[in-house]
C-alpha cells in the first residue's frame, strides 16, 4: 500500500473503479452498436468517454499523479466542443430527413 495515498481513498479498492468503468464503457459500446437514433448513439459515446474519465481519475488518485486528472479536463473540454458540433449536425440531419435514424444515412457507399 502506498503510504502517500490518503486512507479515505483506499477504503474503496481500485478494482471497483475498474469494474465500474468497464461496465459503463460496455453499456456505451452496446448502446452505440444497437441503437439507431443518432442522439442516443451520441449519448452512448459520451458514456464511453465518461467511463474513461472515471478510470483516469481513479488511477490518478491512487498513484498520486495529477496528470490523469488534467487529462480528464481536456477530455471534458473536447467532449463539450464535440457535443456542440455533433448536435448541430444532428439537428441539420433532422431538418433534412425529419428523422435521426442513422441507418438512413447510407448514401456514402459503393
Amino acid at each position: 500500500m502506498n503510504p502517500n495515498i490518503p486512507e479515505v481513498i483506499q477504503t474503496v479498492p481500485l478494482q471497483y473503479y475498474v469494474f465500474f468503468a468497464a461496465a459503463l464503457f460496455s453499456i456505451g459500446v452496446l448502446g452505440v452498436l444497437t441503437r439507431r437514433n443518432a442522439i442516443i448513439i451520441f449519448m452512448c459515446v459520451e458514456l464511453m468517454l465518461n467511463a474513461v474519465n472515471v478510470l483516469l481519475t481513479a488511477f490518478s488518485a491512487y498513484r498520486a499523479d495529477p496528470n490523469g486528472q488534467i487529462f480528464v479536463f481536456f477530455i471534458m473540454a473536447v467532449a463539450a466542443a464535440e457535443v456542440a458540433v455533433g448536435l448541430a449536425i444532428i439537428v441539420m440531419i433532422y431538418r433534412n430527413l425529419q428523422n435521426t435514424d442513422v441507418n438512413l444515412l447510407n448514401r456514402l457507399k459503393f
Binding site: 452505440v32 452498436l33 439507431r36 442513422v102 447510407n106 448514401r107 456514402l108 459503393f110
Partner: peptide
C-alpha cells in the same frame, strides 16, 4: 474492396469494435 463500404453506420461500428 469497395463493397466493404456499405454506407451503414452500424456495420462500420460493429467492424470497428
Amino acid at each position: 474492396l469497395r463493397y466493404v463500404q456499405t454506407g451503414s453506420v452500424e456495420t462500420y461500428l460493429i467492424l470497428m469494435v
